[in-house]
Design a protein around this nucleic acid. Structure first.
Length: 580
DNA sequence: TCAGTTCGCGCG
DNA sequence: AAAGCGCGCGAACTGA
């Protein structure tokens, strides 16, 4: 029933071209020989338009020869509809084709609608089934597009593009009905930025990385040698194929560690850093924690990242999940650039290529500012308006001292108080959190007293908590309208946290979308995003302007949502991610 | 034997 | 009773 026209030579494309110009909306899909836009090839490009046969273009034959015509066709539509636009945009870009203007991404729309009656899974087949009652074949994903094309491949390809038009029709109504239009706009605009960022990737200095690896490997060996007296020396067996066999004790096994600790008279529920913090004076525990830290750095980062460098670009291309977290935050993987250790030695390996600089900006206390807005806390709002240091203010309120007498340590402790208590942490939690995260010790009595004084000082936050506790909402919205539903197992802290984290994500995504538009035609590329931080790479000569631009765009995005509180982004120019 | 789960920990 | 939240990843462990 699907009707398409297969184009495999330039003459045919020229002949039909005029039928595909100046429509309002088109559905676009592509088929490729794999997932990596730099290593794999674009095979088919399908363009579906109402009232016309769907164009199915063999890109092996028509690129680059038909590039200008295809670009002209794409440009002539006001709105392009994709399923997972990021993927197609990257492949088109690799082939010199650019998507511009408004786009509608059915996958992103589906993710936003998950909390408003939509299906949990957002693959095209699920969406078509749920919103249109249409059964789509899933064969396409498994088929091979590198050889001769089959009738089925063309037909299914055309169908996927056609269904997008129908899906958009239904999903727009759903988005409107559920008041998700604004957040959808933010997501769609942001999608361009994410595609761009994944396409360009980030540069890693492999020499520096290898040096660091050697150094950490050495430290780990030394640490392990010091551990042997406690865990027993390895039994060495020389065999034909293995040089060495490790003893029966495996320091990576929490199970074995737990029984060893038990034997030493140390009773803990588990072997986590948190549980062991109480015994941090014990020399074995101390060594164990150090060992695990080094092992983590080696296994998770140092030994894996070199294998993920793309052979074509020689750069790292992490994969971002635009709605990876249910809060609306992004996730990241392969590798997860958002969890690279903060140590300077690690971050210094991520740099610009020759003659380039990194421009790094992060929001100052964005979640606390969002809370001030949500809770409408006059004291917090005033503090931010006056440009005061909120951690210092909290220290002075909680310790009942003059603000100028607050020491560095007291400010550090107040940081724990601010971040912990606004999200519903109890006194006991506050105590251990302060110890673990900020190295600040407080007694249980102090923690209780701090908590009490905190909520006296910040009445708005207190009322906000009280209201949520009283009404136990089953759902919440961010300031851009993103919806989150709570399950029966959700507690208070989730209810305090999700809309705040999500609003911070709205703001960041809004900034990314704007930024993408501003950097067209410049030397600037986006290379990393980490929740409240954006990293750009640009020519050294443009670094100053880039820094100004980035700061302005981020702050404008913040102030678009936080009407009563100034939003500040702190920017720096550097050779590497380690900063100045 | 191998896919799925749990633990522990890096980041914000 | 007491509780901050959100991710991804590697190694060990579990279960059939």
């Amino acid at each position: 029933m699907s009707s398409y026209i297969f184009i495999n030579n330039i003459e045919d494309l020229e002949k039909v071209k005029d039928n595909y110009l100046a429509g309002k909306v088109c559905g676009v899909d592509s088929e490729t020989t794999g997932l990596d836009p730099l290593m794999c090839r674009l095979r088919l490009l399908q363009i579906a338009v109402a009232g016309e046969q769907t164009l199915v273009i063999d890109c092996f034959e028509l690129l680059p020869v038909g590039k200008a015509i295809i670009q002209e066709i794409l440009d002539s539509f006001d709105i392009k509809v994709f399923q997972n636009a990021k993927f197609d945009i990257k492949f088109l870009k690799a082939n010199g084709l650019e998507i511009k203007g408004q786009l509608f991404d059915t996958m992103l729309a589906g993710q936003l609608l998950r909390t408003s009656g939509g299906p949990r899974r957002v693959a095209l087949a699920e969406l078509a089934n749920h919103y249109l009652g249409v059964a789509l074949s899933k064969e396409q994903q498994r088929s091979d597009f590198s050889g001769k094309l089959s009738e089925e491949q063309l037909e299914y390809g055309a169908k996927d593009a056609e269904i997008l038009l129908k899906l958009r029709g239904v999903m727009i109504l759903e988005l409107k009905e559920n008041k998700l239009i604004e957040v959808a706009r933010v997501e769609f605009a942001c999608c361009y930025a994410i595609a761009h960022m994944e396409y360009f990737g980030i540069h890693v200095d492999l020499n520096m990385w290898q040096k660091l690896t050697k150094q950490i490997e050495k430290s780990k060996e030394e640490c392990l040698n010091k551990l042997y007296p406690y865990i027993g020396y390895p039994t060495v067996q020389l065999g034909l194929f293995e040089e060495r066999k490790i003893s029966d004790f495996n320091p990576n096994s929490h199970k074995q560690i737990l029984s060893l600790l038990e034997a030493q008279g140390i009773h803990v529920d588990n072997t986590s850093k948190h549980a062991l913090a109480l015994h941090s004076k014990n020399p074995f525990v101390k060594l164990l924690l150090e060992y695990r830290h080094l092992e983590k750095q080696l296994n998770t980062f140092l030994h894996t990242i070199p294998n993920q460098i793309n052979p074509v670009s020689k750069r790292l291309h992490p994969n971002y999940g635009q709605n990876g977290a249910f809060s609306g935050r992004m996730s990241c993987g392969n590798p997860n650039i958002q969890q690279i250790p903060r140590e300077k030695e690690f971050r210094a390996c991520f740099n610009g290529t020759k003659g380039r600089k990194l421009v790094i900006a992060d929001y100052s206390q964005i979640e606390l500012r969002v809370i001030a807005q949500f809770a409408n806390d006059t004291r917090m709002i005033q503090a931010y308006k006056d440009g005061e240091d909120l951690h210092r203010l909290t220290a002075s309120l909680v310790l009942q001292k003059d603000i100028q007498d607050i020491t560095k340590e007291e400010r550090q402790a107040a940081k724990a108080v601010n971040f912990g208590l606004v999200f519903g942490m109890g006194a006991a939690g506050l105590k251990s959190y302060a110890a673990n995260t900020y190295g600040t010790t407080m007694t249980m009595e102090e923690a209780k007293l701090f908590k009490k004084r905190y909520f006296v000082a910040y009445k708005g936050v207190n009322n906000w908590h009280w209201h949520i506790k009283k009404t136990l909402p089953i759902s919440s919205r961010t300031l851009a309208g993103r919806k989150h539903n709570y399950g029966s197992d959700s507690g208070m802290s989730g209810r305090f946290n999700t809309p705040v984290q999500g609003t911070a994500a709205d703001i960041l995504k809004n900034a990314l979308g704007q930024l993408y538009l501003e950097i067209q035609g410049t030397s600037i590329i986006m290379v990393a995003v980490v929740h409240d931080e954006i990293v750009l790479e640009c020519d050294a000569s443009e670094a100053e302007q880039t820094a100004d631009l980035l700061k302005r765009i981020m702050e404008e995005a913040g102030n678009r949502y936080l009407k009563d509180i100034p939003v500040i982004a702190e920017v720096s120019i550097s050779d590497s991610w380690a900063g100045k």
